[in-house]
Design a protein around this nucleic acid. Sequence first.
DNA 1: CCTCTCGATGAATCCATCT
DNA 2: AAGATGGATTCATCGAGAG
Lengths: 250, 250
Amino acid sequence: MDPIYRTDRATLYAGDALSILPTLPADSVDLVLVDPPYNSGGRTMSDRTTYSARDKYVSGDAATAQTLADFAGDNRDQRSYTYWLTRQLAESLRTAREGASCLVFTDWRQLPATSDALQAAGWTWRGIITWHKPVARPRQGGFTAACEYVLWGAHGPIDGRRNPVYLPGLYSASQPRGKKRRHITQKPIELLAELVKVAPPGGTVLDWCAGSGSTGVAALGSGRRFIGAEVTAAYAAIAAERLAEAEASD
Amino acid sequence: MDPIYRTDRATLYAGDALSILPTLPADSVDLVLVDPPYNSGGRTMSDRTTYSARDKYVSGDAATAQTLADFAGDNRDQRSYTYWLTRQLAESLRTAREGASCLVFTDWRQLPATSDALQAAGWTWRGIITWHKPVARPRQGGFTAACEYVLWGAHGPIDGRRNPVYLPGLYSASQPRGKKRRHITQKPIELLAELVKVAPPGGTVLDWCAGSGSTGVAALGSGRRFIGAEVTAAYAAIAAERLAEAEASD
DNA sequence: CCTCTCGATGAATCCATCT
DNA sequence: AAGATGGATTCATCGAGAG
């Protein structure tokens, strides 16, 4: 499959992860950084399967005000989520260099299933990075869901001297708002720019859930190379546009 | 079994949780707040089983300088940890009022197993509270394990109007040091004092892994009642002493 | 350019009502 | 009786616009 965007430092495919991953060379990637659909909104099966991701996650007035496109793949139950994620992560492992890392975003509800998938795919689980969102909806009589999590896995032992960074285990950052927001579940660039530091400078970052391309923007901005894939055509186009902007602004 | 400490507001037993829980009345507890042994130090089976908890968790000079007593129950593998915790949490559920909460401390490694046990025991999983430890050992080439986690479960629906608090999902607090430290894995009082707020004022807090009694100190200091149990005799004595101090200082 | 006020927002959740 | 639907709720934070 031909990429829809390609330069020396960045490649972006519009397509499914499982059709693109096998075409990548083995032992070539330094960091797999993905934000898969969490598949966790809604209490009942029909909540999960019937509604679109937008109806599930964008609430109140915002639901009518927002003009962001919907995204695909948010309709699996927990078993199939685990199965699906395991396959993708196993394919990713093949492309990863010895000592490479894997970072997977998840919410509290899917954290255990995500850790199962990470390990079943052959990665060694190394820890949890906590992302604190300062703006969270309060909850009467209990605790707010103020954090999302990033599971950290590694392909074999990590040689600390190869990339001697000391990274924190907690980050606080707000979701992009207003004009900067191009995707319903967009992650803040500051956060991604920090996560990308587990890959050595000049190393390659892979994201097969590219969405609006934030991971790529962060990778390029931090002096890493980027390979991305995104299924939803509308978002792939936005991602290509943002990658071009990022490279132009260097 | 007779308590080793008893007042109007606090009761402490020196003994195993499973011999004490069945003696407590049903539907009487508003919050079960426990910090079970994580059973996760050491990578190999023999690390877990051979070494004492003190050797695993107290490193370097601290191990020789400190004279903290060892604690029991830190030698299970993950399967038996889940099984053991499920039994304890199921017994706890019986003592819990409708709408009561359960908070269980865990580290990242045991988080999935702990969520399994919580749900297998019949509690509804409601979220994860993150405890950030500002002073954590850095790790070359990767992310620091800067956080521990508290899993939140509930016994049936929570009536927010009964205890209309709005609690955050992230707390930052340092482990007690120096003379204030009476237990190897002691939790900060400030943190426990916040967690205890999910129980209504005057409500009852139960901790069957009382350790040096911090949960009781926090509960009494925040105007809640306390029921505790601790297996290790040395710690039960310390806990009784600290409960008495807490009640005297009111 | 900085400070202040004002208003909009949230990878939700709860509950009553309807099918 | 169980599942589906729709509307109300909540406040710390952040962006925008005014002073």
